[in-house]
Design a binder for these strands. Structure first.
Lengths: 266, 266
DNA sequence: AACTTCATCCCAGATATAGGGATGTAGGCT
DNA sequence: AGCCTACATCCCTATATCTGGGATGAAGTT
C-alpha cells in the first residue's frame, strides 16, 4: 500500500463559531481549550477578550488558560499579555518536518528560486484554505506578507487555484463562499479555471495582493491526487504576461520533480 | 513599564508523567488532550500507543483523538498513522513571530553567519531546556542535527551554558539533573562556568554532539536578565582553541546588538 | 483618595465525561 | 484461502469532573 505522502484535504475544521451544532459529543473541555488557543492566536490578549471570543465564562476560561500556560501552549505574563507559547513552536516545527512533503520539496524549491530570483511558495490545502508550508524570499526585495503557517483563500491565489485544479465540481461553491459579494464574475472564474486545468498550471493576476502576480503548478502523489502546489510570485513590473507564460513550464518542471519524489508516475 | 521582551523561564512544564501530583484542579480533559498531542509528538502512531503512553483508556483516548483531528492538531488517516496536524504548523510559526526576539535578532544573526561562515543559533530557556528559535546553516556543509523547535540540555551545550550564565546558584542542580551518572566532574563544570561567567561567554567542547564545538554569548533584556543566547558552531577541524577565543568578541558583539534592540542599556 | 476593572480563587450543583463492553473490520497467521 | 487475532470505533450509565456565580484582593484610572 502506498504510504500517505501528504496531508489529506480537510474541510471540517471547527472552532468556537461552529463547534456546537455538529458535535455535542463528549469533549467540551478540550474543545474549549483549543478554542482559547485559537482566540489568542487571533489577537485576544487578556482574559476578558478570551472569554468574549470563545463564549466561555470568565472563571472557566481562567482555569483553562492556567493549564495552557503550564503546558507551554500559552504564555501568560502576570495575568496580561497572553501570547502563544513555546510548546507550539516545538510541535509546529515537528509537524512540518514530520511530513515528507516539505523535506523532499526543499531542494527543488531552492533550485527554482535560484533560477527565477522571485519568491517561491509551497502550500497545501487545509481546512478549505491554502496553508503555506515553505517560502523562499525573492531577491528583488519585493516584500510579500505571506509566511509559513499563514492561510489564504483558495480561489484568490494562484497557488490556491493550482491546489483545486482537479476539483471542478467544487469551483463554483468555493468561489461563491470566498467572494460572497461578487457574484457577477463566477462565469469568468470558471472559464479561467477550465483553461488553467487544461494547461496544468494556474495564475493569479493581483487578485489577492494588489501588485503581486503569480504562476503556480500542482504537485501530485502516487495516486495522482493533487496534494500540494508550488508557485512563483513577483510584483507586476517583474511579471509581464509574457514572462508568466514563460514561467509555466519552469514551475511545472519543479512541481513534477517533487511529484515524482512522492511516488507520482507521470 | 518595560514591555516583556522575551519568553520568561518556565520550569514547571507538565506532561503525563507528573501532572497528577501538582494539580488535581479541574481540567483533566484538556490536560489529557494535550498529553495526547505530546505522545504523538514523541512517536505514538496509533491509538494503542497513545493510550499506553498517556495512561488514558482506549475509549476516552479515541474520543479525544477524534476531536484533535477535527481541530487540525492531529492528523489521523484511517485510524492509523497519527501525525501532528497543520493547526500546529499555523500556530507554531505564529508563536515564533509573535515574540519580538526572533524578529529583531534575525538580521544580526544573518550578519554574524555571513562573517563566520558557520552555523549560527538563537535559543531561549523553556521548561528547563534549551529551545532553539532560529538557525542559520553554515556554509561548510557541516550538518548539525539541531533545528528550530528542538530542545537540548542546558548544561551540555554552549548556548545552554550561556543561557544560565547568571544562575550560579542553579549550576550544580542543573548539572546533576542532566548528567545523573557522572558526578565526578561537577567540580570541573562549576569551575568552567565561573570562568565563562567572568568572561561573559560560554563554550562547548564536543560535550553534546561529538565533533561539534561552539561559542555562545547571552542576550539580555531591559532588566539585564538573560533572555536568550546566540552561538556559533562548527566541526572540530574548523574550531581550534585559538579560533574559539577569537570568536568570543564576535559572538558577544552580535549578542550585545540584539540586547540593545531589546532595551538593554549595557 | 475613592472608584472601577480585572485577574484570581472557592464551592456546590449540574453535567459532561470515563471506560467497560459490544461491534465490525482489516490484517496476520496457519 | 480461511480462520483468528487485534484493533478502531461506537454505545451507555454511574460518577467524577467541570461549570459559573460570587467573593477577594490588587492595580490602574479619574
Amino acid at each position: 500500500m502506498p504510504h500517505e505522502t501528504a496531508l489529506p484535504p480537510q474541510e471540517n475544521r471547527l472552532n468556537a463559531r461552529d463547534a456546537e451544532p455538529s458535535l455535542p459529543s463528549g469533549t467540551q473541555t478540550l474543545a474549549r481549550g483549543l478554542d482559547i488557543i485559537r482566540a489568542v492566536a487571533e489577537g485576544a490578549r487578556d482574559l476578558r477578550s478570551v472569554a468574549e471570543a470563545t463564549g466561555i465564562g470568565r472563571s472557566t476560561a481562567h482555569r483553562l488558560v492556567q493549564l495552557l500556560d503550564r503546558y507551554g501552549y500559552l504564555r501568560v505574563a502576570g495575568g496580561r499579555d497572553y501570547a502563544l507559547g513555546p510548546a507550539l513552536i516545538e510541535f509546529g516545527f515537528q509537524a512540518l518536518h514530520q511530513n515528507p512533503l516539505p523535506v523532499v520539496a526543499r531542494p527543488v524549491l531552492e533550485e527554482l528560486a535560484e533560477k527565477v530570483q522571485d519568491t517561491v511558495h509551497l502550500a497545501i490545502v487545509d481546512g478549505g484554505e491554502v496553508l503555506y508550508l515553505d517560502k523562499i524570499e525573492g531577491t528583488r526585495g519585493a516584500e510579500m506578507r505571506s509566511r509559513i503557517g499563514h492561510r489564504m483563500p483558495l480561489t484568490r491565489t494562484g497557488i490556491g487555484k493550482a491546489l483545486i485544479l482537479d476539483r471542478d465540481s467544487d469551483w463554483q461553491r468555493l468561489y461563491e463562499a470566498e467572494r460572497s459579494g461578487d457574484p457577477g464574475r463566477v462565469e469568468e472564474f470558471l472559464r479561467r479555471m477550465h483553461e488553467y486545468s487544461r494547461h496544468g498550471a494556474a495564475m493569479d493576476l493581483e487578485e489577492n495582493e494588489p501588485g503581486i502576480r503569480c504562476v503556480a503548478a500542482p504537485i501530485r502523489d502516487a495516486g495522482a491526487s493533487i496534494v500540494a502546489a508550488v508557485s512563483v510570485s513577483a510584483t507586476k513590473p517583474f511579471m509581464p504576461a509574457q514572462r508568466m507564460r514563460g514561467l509555466v513550464p519552469v514551475v511545472q518542471k519543479a512541481a513534477r520533480s517533487i511529484s515524482r519524489s512522492l511516488g507520482f508516475a507521470g
